[in-house]
Amino acid sequence: MTHSSSLPRLWQRASCSLLAAALLVSLWLVMPGAQAQERTAVIATRVVTQPWSDPLEALGTLRADESMTLSATVTEIVAELNFGDGEEVEAGQLLVRLEDGEEQAQLRAAQALRDERRNALSRATQLQARNLGSRADVEDSQAQLRQVEAEIEEIEARLASHRLRAPFDGVIGFRNISAGALVTPGMELLTLDKLDVVKLDFSVPEVYLSALHPGLRLTARTAAYPDATFDGEIASVGTRVDPVSRSVSVRAALPNEDRRLRPGMLMTVVLQRRPREALVVPESVLIPSGERHYLFVIDETDDNRLERRQVQVGERRTGEVEIVEGLAAGELVVQHGLQRAREGDRVALLGIADDETTVREILERGRGEENDQASPAQGDV
Rank of each mutant, 00 (worst) to 15 (best):
H3G: 00
S4N: 04
W11N: 13
Q12D: 05
Q12V: 00
C16E: 10
L18Y: 08
L18N: 05
L19Q: 05
L23N: 00
P32S: 04
R39E: 09
T40R: 09
T40V: 14
T40K: 09
Q50G: 01
W52H: 08
A58H: 11
L59P: 01
G60M: 12
T61M: 11
T61W: 09
A64P: 08
A64H: 03
D65N: 15
E66W: 06
E66N: 14
E66H: 11
T69Y: 05
L70D: 04
S71Y: 09
T75Q: 12
E80W: 06
F83Y: 15
D85T: 13
G86E: 06
E87Y: 04
E88W: 04
E88A: 09
V89Y: 00
A91C: 06
G92R: 10
Q93E: 13
E99M: 05
Q104L: 13
Q106P: 01
L107H: 08
R108C: 01
R108W: 07
R114N: 04
R114S: 14
D115V: 09
E116T: 11
R117D: 04
T125W: 02
Q126H: 07
N131I: 01
L132I: 09
S134I: 07
S134A: 11
E139M: 13
Q142A: 10
R146N: 06
Q147I: 06
E156I: 02
P167G: 08
G170L: 05
V171H: 03
G173I: 10
N176I: 10
G186I: 07
M187N: 12
M187W: 08
K194S: 15
D196R: 11
K199R: 14
D201R: 15
P205K: 12
E206V: 15
E206W: 04
H213L: 10
L218H: 07
T219M: 10
A220Q: 11
T222K: 06
D227C: 01
D231I: 11
G232H: 06
R246T: 02
A252V: 02
E257Y: 08
R259L: 15
R259D: 06
R259C: 03
P263S: 12
P263I: 02
L271N: 04
Q272T: 03
E277I: 08
A278V: 06
V280S: 02
E283P: 03
S284V: 12
P288A: 09
R292A: 15
D299N: 15
T301P: 00
L306F: 01
R309I: 07
Q310E: 15
G314P: 06
E315I: 12
V321L: 05
V321Y: 03
V321S: 05
V324T: 13
V324G: 04
V324R: 14
A328S: 14
A329K: 09
Q339L: 14
Q339C: 02
Q339K: 13
R340G: 05
R342D: 07
D355W: 02
E361C: 00
I362P: 06
L363Y: 02
L363P: 01
E364M: 08
G366I: 00
R367F: 08
G368S: 14
G368W: 08
N371P: 00
S375G: 02
Q378H: 11
G379L: 14
D380E: 13
D380Q: 12
